[in-house]
Design a protein around this nucleic acid. Structure first.
Lengths: 346, 346
DNA sequence: CTGAAAGCGCTTACAG
DNA sequence: CTGAAAGCGCTTACAG
């Protein structure tokens, strides 16, 4: 079934069928009705590729999930607690406004080839990137070529930098980390360790910055011995505790995300430290799991839902208006007090 | 940049460029090299829509996530622990063999319109359905129209039923549920309750069947008072406990999935019952969360990864060979003993 | 208000 | 081995 057949049945030309489909104003109501009736009767839907070839938008955006840290384990993304919710949120918002979403994973730098291909071959009209390193050259080159791109977790720079030309949606990492650390300080802690995320990601280095800011404000001297590098996965939080405890004995820990906080809690329990009696711990992100662990994890909550909405909304806007849209967003983090931190009295 | 320009630069015709791209054998090596060089130099990728219009496959499959139970809460899928991992697994397998995946959600029956549209307008060459009710008429009609479809969790029927013409991938629900119940029986339990899933889904009624089978084999009389209907979500497991305890006092519970088991554990704890001392509980699915709750949940583990692989592999095969592929799979469930069940001595 | 025609970027029989 | 030409199914200036 194609427009030619529909035209024949309805007794009009293909031009008119097309005009009806595309809501041209110059079609008399009864002609329109007649055509619509035939379309409905035969379940006719115009061939998407033919429309695109004539310059219509693909009405499809890409969602690119980047997870470059794997060496061997190809399945780590499989139960990632962060990408899953974000993905469904993006799909829902996109579908709501008539867009399809094509999801792709990037595990190695060479996987960016897949992404470029769907841009070049016009399968997608734009894409949302999540999990990227700050200042990634692969993404930079895509933006340079004029593709519409929204990035989550990317440093917002002043001036005419190439990333300045894309849509950026960030958590308010600095303030969130600052609040988390300050919460610990207000509870009376002074020996506060920090397990960092990947420092080549904005959310990694910005949270470290927020931690430092809170310390400084409280006149607590920053001590590098209290910092352990992690990479946002649970295991790195677990390992961090063993490294940390070789050097210092903090009364509280701020982990750059919940997954590491949960890994850390596990190591702490193995070592017979009680959380929160011996050591308090606070995370960041408020993933679903955090409500369930024992003790339930105190953390900084951020709405992934809202972030997804901002990405989709602005990306689609920039695709449709064809003029360049420069949009930068900061989604705030909110303290969720649960059971993993306690007041210190000494 | 299009094939015409590439042809001009390479000094050949568009026909030859096309032959090179499509790996025709009748192109001399040096001509091929010459063309390839230009293609690479200009980052040329053929326009996907133009190729499709000429009859090439879209190399895109759909993944349709169905979640029809919502009345008001549109966001429930957001942190679904089951769809997320399955989705990433499907994407990974599909990408590995050169296919893109378009993900769509269906929350209301009318959302199937979206799905039909991407089939009709040739955006996707086939689709995987997850979360569907048994015998769903919407899917039935799609299969009838000849679309290539793989379904997770659908009853396998004998004979020439329409569903017989699709690819079906199931967990081994009956045996899994049978094993779970038998495990409880072997532990000495006789008063075993069951919290069911949606009974209009295969995984719902088949697990109930497995439960009955184990009871029967052990000569334990089936008693409807020990059955509470749930719907696979955590809250229904929580509520089930309150309903259940009004009537009976089981020493063990088999919940049709982990989410309900976890909800049930929460209710039990509220009511000051100790798990597993007062009541043992076993789940099904082995979701990530189950390792973290306290006590850690004993459950039947099924590889979503393997299920995703079977879906993708067979769907793509059926798309590519063009002959009808009828494939039915049963992925086995394996007992994972953790801390939520105990031996009964009386 | 409406139709005939051109053309989007490919692929592939056809002819040589 | 290779090019010219037709045609996939649409949309849209153009002409009337």
């Amino acid at each position: 079934m194609n427009s030619k057949e529909i035209a024949k049945i309805a007794g009009v030309s293909r031009s008119t069928v097309s005009r009806v489909i595309n809501n041209y104003p110059n079609v008399p109501p009864d002609t329109r009705e007649k055509v619509l009736k035939v379309i409905k009767e035969y379940n006719y839907v115009p061939h998407a590729s033919a429309r695109m070839l004539r310059g219509k938008s693909s009405k499809t955006i890409g969602l690119v999930i980047v997870d470059l840290k794997r060496d061997s384990d190809i399945h780590k993304i499989y139960d990632n607690v962060y990408f899953g919710p974000f993905t469904t949120a993006v799909i829902d918002f996109a579908n709501q406004i008539g867009y399809n979403v094509l999801v792709t994973t990037v595990y190695r730098v060479k996987d960016y080839k897949k992404v470029k291909e769907i841009f070049y071959n016009k399968t997608i009209s734009g894409a949302i990137f999540i999990g990227v390193r700050n200042n990634d050259p692969e993404i930079k080159s895509l933006i340079e070529e004029g593709f519409k791109i929204a990035i989550v977790d990317q440093e917002i720079k002043e001036g005419d930098d190439i990333f300045g030309r894309s849509i950026i949606v960030n958590m308010d990492n600095i303030n969130g980390a600052y609040e988390a650390t300050k919460y610990l300080i207000n509870l009376g802690h002074k020996e506060i360790a920090h397990i960092t995320g990947d420092l080549d990601k904005l959310s990694g280095f910005a949270r470290l910055e927020g931690y430092k800011k809170a310390l400084k404000e409280a006149d607590i001297t920053y001590d590098a011995h209290y910092i352990v590098k992690g990479n946002f996965v649970e295991e790195s939080g677990y390992n961090a505790i063993y490294k940390l405890l070789r050097k210092v004995r903090p009364t509280a820990i701020f982990a750059a995300n919940d997954q590491m906080a949960i890994g850390a809690m596990q190591a702490l329990q193995e070592l017979k430290y009680n959380v929160p009696d011996d050591v308090s711990i606070i995370g960041f992100d408020d993933i679903t799991l955090s409500r369930y662990v024992k003790p339930a994890l105190t953390t900084m909550s951020v709405s992934l839902f809202q972030m997804a909405e901002l990405c989709v909304e602005n990306l689609v806007k920039s695709i449709e208006v064809e003029s360049e849209i420069i949009a930068k967003f900061l989604v705030s983090a909110k303290l969720i007090e649960r059971e993993s931190c306690r007041k210190i009295i000494d």
